[in-house]
Design a protein around this nucleic acid. Sequence first.
DNA 1: TTATTGATCAACCTTTCGGTTGTTTAAGGC
DNA 2: GCCTTAAACAACCGAAAGGTTGATCAATAA
Lengths: 120, 120
Amino acid sequence: MDTGDDELLDSAFLALADPVRRRIIARLSRGPATVNELAEPFAITKQAVSKHIQVLEQAQLVTRTRDAQRRPVHLNPARLEALTAWIDQYRLVREEQFRSLDAVLRSNAAASGKQAKDPS
Amino acid sequence: MDTGDDELLDSAFLALADPVRRRIIARLSRGPATVNELAEPFAITKQAVSKHIQVLEQAQLVTRTRDAQRRPVHLNPARLEALTAWIDQYRLVREEQFRSLDAVLRSNAAASGKQAKDPS
DNA sequence: TTATTGATCAACCTTTCGGTTGTTTAAGGC
DNA sequence: GCCTTAAACAACCGAAAGGTTGATCAATAA
């Protein structure tokens, strides 16, 4: 389960590490779209866009449904949430430590009766 | 400014798309560490770990200070926050639309007087 | 000064990524 | 049936990623 998580995080963060794919995500946040629609704003071939979508799909950031010969792409917000959850797990720990350190510094300054390194 | 943002997002998401670098982030969330300390748990060379840290540094996810001959690495929570901000920007939009769609479906079901596709 | 320790630099190798062109599949429209 | 359209598949190419080994630099300790 650990390794599976790892691979999902690998592929998801890698998927977001490309401006084309981030713009696709941005577009899909306003609703589903087909490959042709998604490819339209870009100066690259439709095949290249199709590959980008495959990367997003493998990361489970998007899913595809069938609608006649069209294959609309949908955003999967749950996977995006998993990424923010991972980041916040460590970001918040560190920020809390900053606050604690700050508190210690203030406490020491008060106990010593001298001014701390406060630039004011 | 836009392109700069793009490149920062590129490098930051790419930096997180590797299990070694994510473990380094996890370690640094508990406090600064040197390259040797960071390299210890891994089965790869110190040089490889040094490269990983350079990737994190270029993405501004970590910074380095000088302490005699040691060069401790520090986590930069602000950059992590920028990533969650980017993700949430689109995740929340989409989730709100889901709620709206749900409301429309419920409304239509009520107006038609027939049962909706409610599985209950 | 010399040796030691912590860390980077440099070259090289293999794999993967982003892109192309060209071909095939699948579903509708006529 | 045939033709058009949406999209995937396949082979290929250049650039970059992740790893190695070996040499170098910078700061301390002897």
